[in-house]
Design a protein around this nucleic acid. Sequence first.
DNA 1: GTAGGGTGGTTAAGCGCTTAATGGATCACG
DNA 2: CGTGATCCATTAAGCGCTTAACCACCCTAC
Lengths: 339, 339
Amino acid sequence: MVAKRPTISDIAKAAGVSTGAVSYALNNRPGVSEPTRRRIMEIADRLGWVPSSAARSLSDGRANAIGLVVDRPARVIGVEPYFMQLISGIQGALAGGPTSLLLQVTDNAEAELAAYRRWWGERRVDGVLLVDLVQNDPRVELVRELRLPAVVLGEPVVPDLPCVWTDDEMAVAEVLEYLVALGHRRVVRVAGPTKFVHTQTRSRAFTEAAARLGLTEARVVHADYSDEAAARVTRRVLTGGTPPTALVFDNDVMAVSALGVAHELGLTVPDQLSLVAWDDSALCRLVRPALSAVRRPIAERGAAAVRLLLDVIGGAPAEQVKTSDPELVPRSSTAHPPA
Amino acid sequence: MVAKRPTISDIAKAAGVSTGAVSYALNNRPGVSEPTRRRIMEIADRLGWVPSSAARSLSDGRANAIGLVVDRPARVIGVEPYFMQLISGIQGALAGGPTSLLLQVTDNAEAELAAYRRWWGERRVDGVLLVDLVQNDPRVELVRELRLPAVVLGEPVVPDLPCVWTDDEMAVAEVLEYLVALGHRRVVRVAGPTKFVHTQTRSRAFTEAAARLGLTEARVVHADYSDEAAARVTRRVLTGGTPPTALVFDNDVMAVSALGVAHELGLTVPDQLSLVAWDDSALCRLVRPALSAVRRPIAERGAAAVRLLLDVIGGAPAEQVKTSDPELVPRSSTAHPPA
DNA sequence: GTAGGGTGGTTAAGCGCTTAATGGATCACG
DNA sequence: CGTGATCCATTAAGCGCTTAACCACCCTAC
């Protein structure tokens, strides 16, 4: 193949028909006879024809691309396996289709809004994925105003916005029940930033479950997903009065970080302190002791979100899809509390 | 702002000029008077005008996008912080400009080639980034044949292809000298897959440095970057006859995995075994003992590659850019070998 | 024999933008 | 006072594709 991109008029010429006929043939629409269609298709792939996305996009108004912008500081994003797994899932659902993924990493909410607005203005994307929703998220307002199809990866807090979510509340309760069954009474949840909706959801579930189980000393503290913040917070919690016997984290990085802090404070895990990570990853398996973790179907979320988004772009109604449930994977970081 | 995208003819109408004039004004080219230009610009941003990428692309032939396809199994990619850091760097260099990033994750070389070919055919990208070059890489052939601008992230092995590289050979030597200075004589390098050019480069540098330093027992074994493979290989190496006193890995994940294996075999790190990771990351800092690692300017690589690619797309000659040098960050996983 | 109804195509407009070619003023100059 | 330049703007073609509208032809039915 040479470095010359054939157009439909090259095909039309070769087949001795009009470009219109070629277009109909290539798109499998009525208007050409079966033999002609076959001949055109044959020529098209002999020539190695691929539709120009710009031209198609200009004439039918579809970009054949979806956008994802991730707004977390570079420092954090490098460590967390979450996003790469999410992207893997997204790609899986996109594979084979005509749609591509546009990715943007920003480090502030303003830039994120600007990115969506630009993509929309440039007609570069047909729809977007929204992660890490916050209370009264300006992005919700934005996509609505722009009529930009969007799917939220997270709880269905906005009534008419499609989303794919995972039952974290159940998982939170399960973890707490598990710890209580082991004998723990003082459990602290080290959460991500309060602003995120999912943080609030889990914290509420945590508090409710604690009340239900009669734990009066369960509480929630916050960090920002980074290992430094987690270390700081963990240290404070563990050195305060009546320290907890178990900690539940909002991601894997913070849990691993806490492992280091425990070590440094001379606390052995799991004998003197139990640790549970959120989002299982190789990280959890790799450290010693290996971390008990809540495994969530991250790639599945990504794939489901893409499918839903493509449907919505195609005009389907806004569904709220629930993924399979998270699952607690007990490893070596949880045990009975010290007597 | 309402959900209606203004076009240049809306602006033209509002300004009482032709669309041609609007185009000249908006692109800062001669052909309109200063007052008119100002008036047009003013109207344009009052209307919230953003150029349609499809239309622009169709008429000037530029896609204003670059592509990156990453071909590693999902299993591996989730863990390694490398790619996210790379992407951060890429975004940094792209920020503010009109260019977007198209990302694709595949799990086989065929699919990767197909992705490049499709992007090229669809005129979706102006150029691409190539990572993980292998010997006689078919992608080199492909981009040449397609005349698709490309920048290699890696050593300058292909003469006329632009690339940005890091002096790994020097770093390998430095690490070995450091270990020898500590007293180590038996050092094994646990490398990534042989097929990668960078693996070969580092292995060669390792062997040469070992010879120069008079280490007769230095050798190289291979794994696939995953923690499982690394664990297997490490276990074999450590339980064989005359086991090494130090191991040097080709990424961070494998080094962490080895830490677990050492633990399991009852070997304390660093007293009985020293470990060095490649590509420093939070992972290395987080585990206990914290891993000594070679820190490479990954984000810088990404940013430099983007800048170079944009230059090349703009018609600049194929340069070979060298990044700043890697740096050994000694932590707690390296010490004198046992007596 | 002609009205009516499929087939299997062609024509041409249009998507939003760029840009070479063109043209009308205005101005300086011999 | 004609004659180039110079400046500013318009015109129109074209990028590659989709699609509504149209048309030529053959076949059936009454």
